[in-house]
Design a binder for these strands. Structure first.
Lengths: 215, 215, 215, 215
DNA sequence: CATGAATGAGCGTTCATTCAT
DNA sequence: TATGAATGAACGCTCATTCAT
């Protein structure tokens, strides 16, 4: 005979298990919709991927999408934010605040370009909708908040005279710009961006922002 | 009585004059449509600018646009090509194959960023539709043909050991990438990209692609 | 030890009690749905009040409504009938078959207009859906059955020469029509329908259907 | 040989003829849409008659409707106003400011009920949408402006002591209410509203608003 | 050649209804 | 029995494109 406590406990666990299942199912469906949207929007563009197609490809009803996202614009914005977070996370992967500034820079820089190359859809999506009129400003501002740690690195590097005393915006442009261009050229022309080339480019970028004597 | 030859000649001239007029009118109308499209597409985005609005703003009938462009996609593509040509032309403005490589580089680089800043609509348009799925690949390849002279400069610079021996793609990415990023930040955040900052950035770009000892 | 009879009886009572509870709960829920529907439909109109909203406002699940009503149309029809019954009941409140015909008429008439003014939602609902295509004819015929007692009054009044010998339909129109119009004007224009004005109007209505010399 | 004046005149007439044709075509199409809408909305109700059905029944494209009406709501509102104007016009048909007040009243009253009976669709439409939430208030106010002449009649009648000194709203309710009720009953129950019955009813209405001694 | 009225396919979105839990 | 997530048909509306004038 099972003790009443054990039974109660079982029932409670059973319920919380179910709740978790339901929650997970919902999360999964959200995720499914987002990923399907990413696929299609990258392939066809925002306006050429009707909600109905997303639903079809996701294997769900069109109306279901509206249970998870207020409308198409919100869906895109959430996808945007989700990807941005992944990008930042990837960039900071295995990053430690140790070693020379150059080493730390190269770590971050390579993480980022690696992600762009390995996740072409995410990269294309972000680049395509970066300044599209229907990506809300709030989303763009959010970006800056999550970018905080990286900004901190730049500021420190400048203070330590490892980097030139350039405005933050200039530094970002000098480092992020080439990544975008390289990734675009890589993906568009299907030409191999080898380890060697990535290294060359990262060295060149460091040359752009660092003092010459500062090796 | 007028000689038949003269009359024939007059008639021929008359006709060719008319043809030229018509041609010019036609050219003007093409131009008018393209410029109006640029204005509207930059402001509202491709899918938010109906053909009817372009016609209205251009002061012509909607059907007329279809006499000059096969359809909306072709219109965008032609606009894309037209702007690209203007960009290259602006980049090569006052460019002479004289002086040091650095000087020549800085001339080209500044010409380009200057154009982007002074022609925000053209810049935004190109950036926005650069990798949009409905901009045909042909157009993108055409770009490379008109970019010929600039490529030539890079090849020469490398040969003269003024530039590092990097793949052309890498060089383009290192120089063009920051321009795009800077211009975007400038236009988006309305923060002044002063002469000083432009110079700083161009110096940094040169540092990226040139040998350190190579001043 | 309890006698088996008593136990049986207890169980039976227990069951019938439960049944009654369930019945009451069911009745309550039906009522709750109907009232919520009335509120919302009056405020937003039939097609602007989704089932889901009714469910939400009623604090129940959307599916539950379908346990009580076959579909939305049936729900409206039942609401219609329910309100009609209330109207008739209100009209006959404190009505006695005594006094002069005029007095009795005025009692009924005032009861009716009073109800319309005091229950604007019910009034509006009935008026709005009176001849809507989706209110079934059966419902309208039912009205006539419950209107029996009032019809009786008209017939008697005519027989007693207190009322003109007009067709029943004409009498109804002459008495009910002004009530609807007055109530509509009252509710729509928020102008006070004072006791005095109600009395004036009821007198006028009596003048319409009674013989002049018949005071 | 035709004189140049005549030719010019012909051309001018020709053009204006064409313009008129175009104008008429447009007017005709507007009218066609309005009448088709009236038919369908009366039959099925506003929300049960999709734009697509109106287009189909009118033999035009769905999009065409939007060239003539901003949206569905506007279409309904314009139909509402158009019908109201017809009603007022019908009411004032052959009306002269001569004869006794009673005669004049009966003329107006009979005109109105006649119109309601002879134009059941127009009548039903107005009654159905009179206080529907999507009929704008402006439209309702417009009604009062076109009703001006009739209001004038009431005011004069009261001043001449032909009518009781009742508020205007009360008079309207006493006279218009029965018309609506009679017409509804007539149309709903398919029972003949004979000349005799109409006369009886109009007499009764006059009794309602006039002084007894005032024959 | 230029026009713009007409078209209708196709979109985003809603919501009555179902059904697994 | 009650729920509410899921569905998908159906809606209002837009706009690229055509074609009679």
């Amino acid at each position: 005979m099972i003790s009443s406590d054990l039974l109660t406990s079982f029932v409670r666990n059973e319920r919380s298990f179910r709740l978790r299942m339901i929650e997970n199912q919902a999360t999964d469906k959200r995720f499914l919709i987002l990923e399907t949207t990413l696929d299609l929007v990258t392939e066809y563009g925002f306006h050429a991927t009707p909600i109905s197609l997303i639903a079809q490809r996701a294997g769900i009803g069109a109306g279901t999408i509206y249970r998870y996202f207020e409308n198409k614009e919100h869906l895109i914005n959430e996808l945007f934010t989700a990807i941005k977070k992944r990008v930042i996370k990837a960039m900071l992967k295995d990053y430690r605040e140790e070693g020379t500034y150059k080493e730390r820079f190269k770590h971050l820089w390579r993480n980022l370009i690696q992600y762009c190359i390995e996740h072409p859809k995410e990269f294309q999506f972000v680049e395509q909708y970066r300044y599209a009129p229907y990506v809300s400003n709030m989303t763009r501002e959010e970006t800056f908040i999550i970018l905080g740690p990286i900004m901190q690195f730049f500021i420190e590097s400048k203070r330590a005279k490892a980097m030139k005393d350039l405005p933050l915006y200039t530094i970002i442009a000098l480092l992020y710009g080439p990544i975008v261009s390289l990734a675009k050229l890589h993906l568009d022309h299907n030409q191999q961006l080898t380890e060697e080339r990535i290294d060359q480019a990262s060295e060149a970028c460091w040359d752009a922002v660092s003092y010459k004597e500062n090796e």
